[in-house]
Design a protein around this nucleic acid. Structure first.
Length: 205
DNA sequence: CGCCTTTGACCAGCGC
DNA sequence: GCGCTGGTCAAAGGCG
């Protein structure tokens, strides 16, 4: 069976047509259930995808400016909140998704606009961790991006919260119905928008 | 001019 | 209580 993310007849020209054209490989991801604060919700692609030969790939055409450009609105409503309260808010805000991609670039264009608000070196890792907040005013979603300490060829991206607005871009992909059923879940929708993003006007079908 | 990144400082949680 | 660590703030400067 062909990869559902490979270009379909109605897809844009820049969409990759084969495995070789994907510079990234989504190797692992983690979905933390809403209200959960541990990693027991680890799922493999096989768990979520009924087809064994279906693979998750992140496509090419990821301009570095994509996730960093555009207008943003500073949101300082959460400033000066204690860490304890923030942790509670994170859980209440909903799903957290973390995944690891093999990528040369750290910034994956997921269709949303992000504003970087912090950078920290982390213990047991030579690579710094970058903190981003959704540029849409009032949107609580945050993401953390860091290179895998064990293999710097991989980038670990984690998202927290749900967007309270529509994606500024629209993602175009087609897939078999069973896959779309999974993709329609909030967690997979977030994952898809994160891992399966590419340049251009996007439409989710 | 507006929005971005950078970066040092600050704060709170946690383990000892 | 102290030190370490992760997460966030906010000022400064850059860029289109």
């Amino acid at each position: 069976m062909s990869n559902p993310f490979f270009r379909q007849p109605n897809m844009p020209e820049f969409f990759p047509e084969s495995d070789d054209q994907f510079p990234f490989q989504l190797s692992d991801y983690l979905v933390l259930e809403e209200g959960s604060d541990d990693s027991s919700g680890l799922k493999s692609p096989e768990d979520l995808c009924p087809s064994n030969d279906m693979q998750f790939k992140t496509p090419a055409c990821l301009p570095e400016s994509g996730a960093n450009s555009g207008q943003g609105v500073s949101d300082s409503s959460n400033s000066k909140l204690g860490t304890k309260k923030l942790k509670k808010m994170k859980v209440e805000n909903g799903v957290r998704v973390a995944f690891r991609t093999q990528s040369d670039v750290e910034i994956l264009d997921d269709g949303y606009r992000w504003r970087k608000y912090g950078k920290k070196s982390v213990k047991n890792s030579p690579n710094p961790r970058n903190y981003y907040r959704c540029s849409n005013g009032g949107c609580p979603v945050k993401k953390k991006v860091e290179r895998d300490a064990k293999d710097s060829a991989f980038v670990i991206t984690s998202y927290e919260g749900r967007h309270n607005h529509t994606c500024p871009c629209v993602i175009y992909y087609t897939a078999p119905q069973p896959f779309l059923d999974y993709a329609s879940s909030p967690e997979m929708h977030l994952l898809m928008q994160s891992a399966v993003a590419f340049q251009g006007p996007y439409v989710i079908t």
